[in-house]
Amino acid sequence: MNNNACCAHKDPHKKEPEGVSRRDFLGLAGIGVAIAASFTAIAGIFRMTKATVHYEESRKFKIGMPAEFPVGTIKKLDDKKVFVFADTEGLYAISCICTHLGCIVSPTEWGFQCPCHGSKYNKDGKVIGGPAPRPLPWLEVSLHEDGNLVVDAAKEVKKGTKFTV
C-alpha cells in the first residue's frame, strides 16, 4: 500500500517500545479533537436553552419623583397593579394582586378587600379573612440614578420595610 510506504521499514505487528506510532498518534489526535469539538458544540447548544432576555415588559418601573409622594399618599398604579403608600416612616409598595386567584384587591377603611372570593387583608397586607393563602407581598422600593422612585415587582421585601430618601 502506497500510503504505508514511508513506514515500510517497520514491522506493523511489532510493538513500538517508545511513544506511539505516527498512525496511532493521528488516530488519537483526530478522535480527541473530535470529542473536544463535539463537547464545545454541545455546550453551545445547551447555552441556547437559557434565554438572556425575554419578550416581556420589565417588572421594574419608575413611579415618579419622591416629591410626588408626600406623607399620607395612597396611590394605586392600575397598569402596574401596585399600591404605593407614604407615611411618616417612609414609602412602601404593596402588590394589589390577591394571592388567592389573582384578582385585583381594592382598598377599604381597614385594609384590602378582594371582590372575587371575599379575601380580606389588613393594612399591612396580612390575611384576616377569606381563602387567601398568603399575605399581599411588599415590593422593593429604591431610587433611580435620575432621582425617580423605582418599584421592582419581581423583588419581595419583608413586611414593614419602608424606604426613606
Binding site: 488516530g27 483526530g30 479533537v33 473530535a34 473536544a36
Partner: peptide, 16 residues
C-alpha cells in the same frame, strides 16, 4: 484509513 483520520483531524480542528 490514514486519509480519513487526517480528514477527521482537520475537520475537528476547524470545528473546534
Amino acid at each position: 484509513r490514514r486519509f480519513y483520520l487526517k480528514l477527521l483531524l482537520v475537520s475537528s480542528i476547524a470545528l473546534l
